[in-house]
Amino acid sequence: MREIDVSIITDKIKELCINANCVLNEDVYNAINEANKNEASPIGRNILSQLMENADLAKSKFKPICQDTGMAVIFMEIGQDVHFTGGDLTDAINEGVRRGYTEGYLRKSVVSDPLIRVNTKDNTPAVIHYDIVKGDRVHIEVAPKGFGSENMSRIYMLKPSDGVEGVKAAILDCIEKAGPNPCPPMVIGVGIGGNFELCAKLAKKALLRPIGSHSHKEHIRKMEEELLEKANMLGIGPQGLGGSTTVLGLNIETYATHIAGLPLAVNVSCHVTRHGECTV
């Protein structure tokens, strides 16, 4: 049994929240740069250059890339041989979010009740997913997620008879309907299988995978490539003002499902797809 004091988790979460919001990951940055070389629209190229300039500036001044510093989504993979000491783990995670968003000058965008809507003023609580794995380590992933793009996400409870074609059509439909709203170029996370709530979680997890990484399942890898190409033929372009760069990356995660169902979730993200991780 390995003991870990929860204050270590608080410190890590704080750092990851600030870093993820101020420094754009290399995979996303490089994808924008590549897209800029191939973008057909002059306005589109101008916008993509501004996005790179924005990311450079955010990094050098260490300020948020985008003012919507999101709701903090946290994936905790906890080794089953770990014993946490010094307090409640969930409280420690939220304390890390609180400190990160306060000390890092990040925007507080969370309301305590979805209907009464009073801002909690410290961006807590986070959305936390716990997974128990083997071993004695803790892997933390922090993905602050803005809601301009989150609001464009969809769940489809398809029928088995809809098949691969039905899945592809739904994904492209979701991207097309999102249009200019999620600050294209977008990054798309797709979850297929599981049930109602698991497909949504898979879609979110797919967004954590670097752009350009591929599923190790051959048929899924092909689908990722085909959909990326088709999405970029929709014409939406940077900021929805037309062009050949609509989606920078499209990742799919899958899971077993029920004989009667074909659940599909599409989590739409933007060119400020943020993600940071560490292992304790």
């Binding site: 501004q50 996005l51 924005n54 955010a58 948020p64 890339i65 985008c66 919507d68 301009g148 200019p180």
Partner: peptide, 13 residues
């Protein structure tokens, strides 16, 4: 008028 969504650092200048 559209401003570039996500270019928050740049626009703050």
């Amino acid at each position: 008028i559209g401003a570039v969504g996500g270019a928050g650092a740049l626009l703050s200048e």
